[in-house]
Amino acid sequence: MNIFRLAGDMTHLASVLVLLLKIHTIKSCAGVSLKTQELYAIVFATRYLDIFTSFYSIYNTLMKLVFLGSSFSIVLYMKYHKTVHRSYDREQDTFRHWFLVLPCLLLALLIHEKFTFLEVLWTFSLYLEAVAILPQLVLLQRTRNIDNLTGQYVFLLGGYRGLYILNWIYRYFTEPHFVHWITWISGLVQTLLYADFFFYYSQSWKNNKKLQLPA
């Protein structure tokens, strides 16, 4: 494992911890998109089915369990915890996320490396992860006051994607035959979706002002 990959995983872990901290300690999910969280739960559930069929390392299995557990608990918290649920911006979080799931499934059925159940689901999870942040970005744009934790959550998620790209570049040059087009292209699309957010985040940071995205 290279430093970019480890840093990427740790940034991803940090983003989840920031979100859980907000929900668990402050008992608020204001500004957090339940649609995006549901999509991530689907992403991890379909990608990590291989914990039953393959073993890579203790690290790999542990991280998979952490991401599965955290994504499902965030969804359950937002849906069923009374106080947390009350802070949910239901009226603003209107992105029709199921319209992302179907095209991703169709695309995975069309473009994949092997036509097997696990492989198609794995490919589907990559396509879906690429666009899963969209409901969250739309909600951020609609939210007048973005609190620091929500901003940091999205910033860390974007950082994780950026570091994964550095990891792929590193692996391409250091490991023979490391070519994975599906992973790379969907990963690149996913990272590009954050570009706009990163611009406004850095502006607010530079000017020491509250983060606000233009309508």
């Binding site: 995983d9 291989d50 393959s54 991401f67 992973t183």
Partner: peptide, 10 residues
């Protein structure tokens, strides 16, 4: 258990 090289990432 089979091991797929590309799936060692999360």
């Amino acid at each position: 258990l089979n091991k797929s090289y590309k799936k060692d990432e999360l």
